[in-house]
Structure formats: C-alpha cells, structure tokens
Deep mutational scan, measured.
Amino acid sequence: SKWSPSQVVDWMKGLDDCLQQYIKNFEREKISGDQLLRITHQELEDLGVSRIGHQELILEAVD
C-alpha cells in the first residue's frame, strides 16, 4: 500500500466513532499505509490505543 499518512488519516475518519480520538496520534507519528498494514498490538498501544477492543477494530479494518 502506497498510502501517505494523510490517506491513513482519511481512512481512519471512516472508521467507528470510538476510534476518532486516536487520529491525532497517527497523524503525529506520520503512520503510512505500509506501517498500518504491519501494525501490531504493541505499536497500537504506543499510539495510545490501549483498549484491546479498539485495537481489534483497527486491526480488523486493516485486514
């Protein structure tokens, strides 16, 4: 995926409302499409996504 960080942010805006709070962290870390495809629970935790349910929603959406 050749998504830029801004495309990742646009994609996140289409996800569940409960995930919108994390967008600024993804933006700050400039998460690209390639990074998103390989993202782990630990990396999500580092991005402030501490709730497992929220991590799962992001990982499922990526899949």
Rank of each mutant, 00 (worst) to 15 (best):
S1R: 08
S1D: 14
K2H: 15
K2G: 13
K2V: 11
W3Y: 04
W3R: 05
W3P: 03
W3I: 13
W3G: 04
W3S: 05
W3T: 00
S4K: 10
S4P: 06
S4L: 06
S4Y: 05
P5M: 07
P5D: 08
P5R: 05
P5T: 15
S6Y: 10
S6T: 15
S6I: 10
S6G: 13
S6M: 13
S6Q: 14
S6W: 08
S6N: 15
S6P: 07
Q7E: 14
Q7D: 12
Q7K: 09
Q7M: 11
Q7G: 06
Q7A: 09
Q7L: 03
Q7V: 04
V8P: 02
V8R: 01
V8H: 01
V8Q: 00
V8M: 02
V8W: 00
V8Y: 00
V9R: 08
V9L: 09
V9P: 01
V9F: 03
V9Q: 09
D10P: 00
D10V: 07
D10Y: 09
D10H: 09
D10K: 10
D10E: 15
W11L: 01
W11V: 03
W11R: 03
W11Y: 06
W11I: 00
W11P: 01
W11D: 04
M12V: 08
M12S: 02
M12Y: 07
M12P: 00
M12E: 03
M12Q: 00
K13T: 08
G14I: 00
G14T: 15
G14S: 14
G14F: 00
G14D: 11
L15N: 05
L15I: 06
L15P: 03
L15K: 06
L15F: 05
D16C: 03
D16K: 04
D16I: 04
D16H: 07
D16P: 13
D17F: 09
D17W: 05
D17K: 09
D17Q: 12
C18Y: 01
C18I: 06
C18E: 11
C18W: 00
L19N: 04
L19A: 04
L19W: 00
L19G: 03
L19F: 05
L19M: 09
Q20W: 11
Q20H: 15
Q21V: 12
Q21M: 11
Q21R: 10
Q21D: 12
Y22Q: 04
Y22D: 05
Y22I: 02
Y22H: 05
Y22S: 03
Y22M: 00
I23E: 06
I23G: 07
I23A: 14
I23T: 12
I23D: 03
N25E: 10
N25Y: 13
N25D: 12
N25K: 08
N25R: 10
F26T: 02
F26R: 01
E27K: 10
E27P: 03
R28V: 10
R28W: 04
R28S: 13
R28T: 13
R28Q: 13
R28G: 08
R28H: 11
R28I: 11
E29D: 12
E29Q: 14
K30I: 05
K30V: 05
K30G: 13
K30P: 06
K30Y: 07
K30D: 09
K30S: 12
I31F: 05
I31E: 02
I31D: 00
I31V: 13
S32E: 07
S32D: 12
S32M: 06
S32P: 04
G33K: 06
G33S: 04
G33D: 01
G33F: 09
G33C: 02
D34M: 11
D34Q: 14
D34G: 11
D34W: 10
D34L: 11
Q35D: 10
Q35N: 11
Q35L: 07
Q35E: 10
Q35S: 08
Q35R: 15
Q35A: 12
Q35K: 13
Q35C: 07
L36I: 07
L36F: 03
L36P: 00
L36E: 02
L36G: 01
L37P: 06
L37Y: 08
L37F: 08
R38E: 08
R38D: 10
R38Q: 10
R38S: 13
R38K: 14
R38N: 11
I39D: 05
I39S: 05
I39L: 15
I39T: 06
I39Q: 04
I39W: 03
I39F: 08
T40K: 09
T40Y: 00
T40Q: 06
T40A: 05
T40G: 11
T40D: 07
T40S: 11
T40N: 09
H41Y: 12
H41C: 10
H41K: 15
H41I: 09
H41L: 08
Q42S: 11
Q42C: 06
Q42E: 11
E43F: 06
E43P: 00
L44W: 00
L44V: 02
L44R: 03
E45W: 09
E45F: 13
E45N: 14
D46V: 11
D46G: 12
D46N: 14
L47S: 02
L47Y: 03
L47Q: 01
G48F: 00
G48P: 03
G48K: 05
G48C: 03
G48D: 04
G48N: 04
G48H: 02
V49N: 00
V49Q: 01
V49C: 07
V49T: 01
V49M: 07
V49I: 12
S50G: 08
S50L: 12
S50R: 13
R51Y: 15
R51I: 15
R51W: 11
I52V: 14
I52K: 15
G53Q: 15
G53M: 14
G53P: 14
G53H: 14
G53K: 15
G53L: 12
G53R: 15
G53W: 10
G53V: 12
H54T: 01
H54I: 00
H54W: 00
H54D: 11
H54L: 00
Q55A: 08
Q55E: 00
Q55C: 06
E56I: 11
E56K: 15
L57S: 08
L57G: 04
L57Y: 05
I58T: 03
I58F: 13
I58H: 08
I58N: 01
L59E: 04
L59A: 04
L59W: 03
L59F: 07
L59M: 13
L59V: 05
E60S: 14
E60L: 07
E60M: 09
E60R: 12
E60T: 13
E60Y: 05
E60D: 14
V62Y: 00
V62M: 05
V62E: 04
V62C: 06
D63Q: 13
D63G: 15
D63F: 08
D63R: 15
D63H: 14
D63I: 08
